[in-house]
Design a protein around this nucleic acid. Sequence first.
DNA 1: TATTGTTATACTCTATAACTATA
DNA 2: TATAGTTATAGAGTATAACAATA
Lengths: 163, 163
Amino acid sequence: MAAQEHYEELARQLGALGSIRRGIARVLPEGCSPATAIMLTLLARFGEMRMSKLAELLEIDMSVTSRHVSYAAAHGWLDRTPDALDRRSRLVRLTPSGEALLDEVSRRHAAALATCLSDWSDADVALLAGLLARLRENFGQCPPPAREPAPGRAVPAPAHITV
Amino acid sequence: MAAQEHYEELARQLGALGSIRRGIARVLPEGCSPATAIMLTLLARFGEMRMSKLAELLEIDMSVTSRHVSYAAAHGWLDRTPDALDRRSRLVRLTPSGEALLDEVSRRHAAALATCLSDWSDADVALLAGLLARLRENFGQCPPPAREPAPGRAVPAPAHITV
DNA sequence: TATTGTTATACTCTATAACTATA
DNA sequence: TATAGTTATAGAGTATAACAATA
């Protein structure tokens, strides 16, 4: 098996991860979506930051970040305070309630994975987590390739889906 | 670092994979969504099958599978033929056009990963793909845990999100 | 004029429930 | 009565564009 097939297989595995993400989402506390959990994790790890910085770390548009932050603020999981140095900005910070939620999220995540991955060694779990972190880092440095037009005899999208 | 933290870190990495999936989706040919690509891959690997079998392999509801199949059929990437043995069923099968699309998808996937993961060894790429396959297999065997109610002083969802 | 953040709108992917046709 | 598949509706997550306030 040459590298070409290994890349293709990795792409397939990454694409088929949806069911795992849905499975992990199901163990989260009520009202806490995966997006909320990731956001609170970043605030816990890097501390108070501006909206734009949070959007950059989440790798999503700031408009989306704004709604996630509003939702979490309405639940009391984070605070938004005006930035005295630049009054256009707001500083986002985890609250004690948010820290408590994050602790619960961590417990549930670990419990769910411990159940499903009972026959994995500690080293394998750490290895996979490390490879995924490296993957994300390399993708972050990679310039997003523009979508190419379909090659050859392109298939035009039908106006309506027929059955 | 104990196993508990390794599980938590793995859950974080899996949750933060959204940007990678979006990056991979961007290189797909026009009209070919990630869902379509995965579906065609399964048909290429396992051959003609019923809708229900395809939904099971995709790990999504048959209603969702039905729409993805209708979309791909409208593009000419697959055929649906009545099952002579059970006229409620339809057999789904890749067309030559679908095979050609899948070849192009594989090329683009491999090219995109080869660019971003240029400093990965062939063994590392295969290792990550293998660990993800094992992860999906273990999750498939794992009974989906029911959502527990929020613990302690649960935070009620506000009726409206205030800004 | 440029930048920060918010909101409106649209698109993708998913699940639940109601429905038709067949077993 | 039960099962295979389809369709309608709703919800989560995202991007683009228009907008307000401030730099």
